[in-house]
Design a protein around this nucleic acid. Sequence first.
DNA 1: CTGTTAGCGCCTTCAT
DNA 2: ATGAAGGCGCTAACAG
Lengths: 367, 367
Amino acid sequence: MQVNTNKPILLVKRTLINIAISENSENIPNKMNLKDLAKVLNLSSSTVSRALNDSHEISIKTKQRVQALAKELNFEPNPNASSLRKQKNKTIAVVVPDITNHFFSKVIEGIETIAQDKGYHILIYFTFESYAKEVSILKHLSNGRVDGIILSLSAETNTYEHIKELKERKVPLVFFDRICEDVEAARVTTDNQIAAKSGTKHLLDAGCKKIAFLNFSTSSVTSIQRRQGYIDALNQNKIEVDNSLILDCTTNKDENYQLISNFLMKRSDVDAVFASSENLGTTTYQVCESLGLSIPNKIKVLGFSNMALAPLLNPSFSCITQPAFDIGKEAAQVLFKSIEKPNIDYSDTKIILKSTLVERKSTKQFV
Amino acid sequence: MQVNTNKPILLVKRTLINIAISENSENIPNKMNLKDLAKVLNLSSSTVSRALNDSHEISIKTKQRVQALAKELNFEPNPNASSLRKQKNKTIAVVVPDITNHFFSKVIEGIETIAQDKGYHILIYFTFESYAKEVSILKHLSNGRVDGIILSLSAETNTYEHIKELKERKVPLVFFDRICEDVEAARVTTDNQIAAKSGTKHLLDAGCKKIAFLNFSTSSVTSIQRRQGYIDALNQNKIEVDNSLILDCTTNKDENYQLISNFLMKRSDVDAVFASSENLGTTTYQVCESLGLSIPNKIKVLGFSNMALAPLLNPSFSCITQPAFDIGKEAAQVLFKSIEKPNIDYSDTKIILKSTLVERKSTKQFV
DNA sequence: CTGTTAGCGCCTTCAT
DNA sequence: ATGAAGGCGCTAACAG
């Protein structure tokens, strides 16, 4: 038998493998399983399984043999079989409204950072701000596809039966940002009301008299809290709240463009806009462009936004930035804890992180 | 037997279910399986399975009975069991360098749109521009966790064994943007070279003489093509290429900040910067801010970027925008085709989409 | 049209 | 320290 002197052992092993595999897997050498490995090593599949899972009841020598061959052949145990057997699959779902919003991308990045550390996989779902999509997505997650769910509600969502269903089935659940107060589950959020109040104050301090508030949702707690912060600031400055300055927007960008455009055309007295979401901020800018309302001079715009670039580009653009990356990390940590310690109840966990007001050249944190 | 007159049938069924379940599932009524359903309906589990999968060999009446009860009880078949049996799991992986780059978020949104349509699930992975992470992630995907992979290479990647391994195991694979020419697989990309040439020309037309080029990677085809486009434009204008104007950056933002900062301090002759990635564009802005180089006047910056807001905020900021959403859609469509028609080889598919130069008030497409 | 049977690949008692 | 056997929940082949 001629053998390449560089890697004789490898060659012999490969030969054995090919024999082993052709016996039971119809000559498909790209599919390999525990049994194949076991055959080559002259061990039972249970021993191989234990060795790969680093069980203490396997001799170190055997473990090394098994692990060495597995590594050499790039063997990966079939995750479906493993998950089925263990009723755990080291996979979580992240359900978010959309991802054009930079905030959500960063949160996801935070989640992924922790997940990679802990060897978890992430299934990602977008509701595109639609309640119906949210329901349908969560329904598909109710039966063991994932070990847990991190969720930020769609702007449309105002009933929570679909979420209670998940709780009934004991699926671990963590809310972030667009949280739900009606369901007992861990929450990670930010100081929306305080931040919105400070933001509004920032505009008042700059001399603005007629500050419009753009509401991204009438049902989302997040939007409601921000609206309340806006009202708080006005109250504190003894300014009467003018409801006609509060504009309820939709989840559709084109519709919002029309709404905001019509609004600003009618209301030439408005000298500032507080956009309660990044998308609304962007749309406001576009409207101002097309209406020829020069932003720094005629009108000031402030919004919740996570685009680091924005304040660098225009002196008038201040934004409230949430610690998105940390939100993701916190949410993931709570979720993994509640997955790994199912006997402990984490559903009263509430983590509130602080937002930051980013101006052109300075940064200050809210108190 | 006292029965709530509102929902008598439902109640009876629930009772049956509880009996059925308590017999074999240890009183865990939140876990339900085909067998439980079958028992309640007095059918075999295979019939129920077929009914749920809408098989033509089941009577319409039975189908309706089964589907009605399944819906009522929110029954979802266990995906692991199903995937294990079918050796298909209606799940794909999307592997991207990072997601702070708006481009990648939009691509993912495009992919998700198609995936939702077709009932596929998306596992998402970030390499954070690290070759080692890319290798490790792809290794975990080699054994049936997913039906296919959509991949954009990390900036560090310059060897492709880990990808060839996937091809050997017949995992359907589609590259986008950061594609790989050394592996036979479908590719979706954009006209990088032409776009970079037009962008550079744009700067030359604006009177710039010393245009620096920031390279985001020395190995990525994308970066190489953009660099070549930059050189093409200079050549066409009979300007000699000055290699000292080409700055190789890294995957680390802080390092890049230092590199660019040092560079611009030394080279006061530079009057424009062409950033070959969104991150580099952002960093350049930050450097200019801190060095007091007013962007519109002393220096012009142009870059590949997908932030819609940018050109609205600063007249000097033009950017080359790739059709990210469509790239995602195209990539997903090719992948699903190659999953669903495994006998057809799609590996020579190459789709090239066009980029757009976005200036403050006008938009033009490259020819 | 429906039921019976036999795995998919892994892990986990139980036995040795 | 290792092996044998059974089953996680579903589906497909084979019967009827």
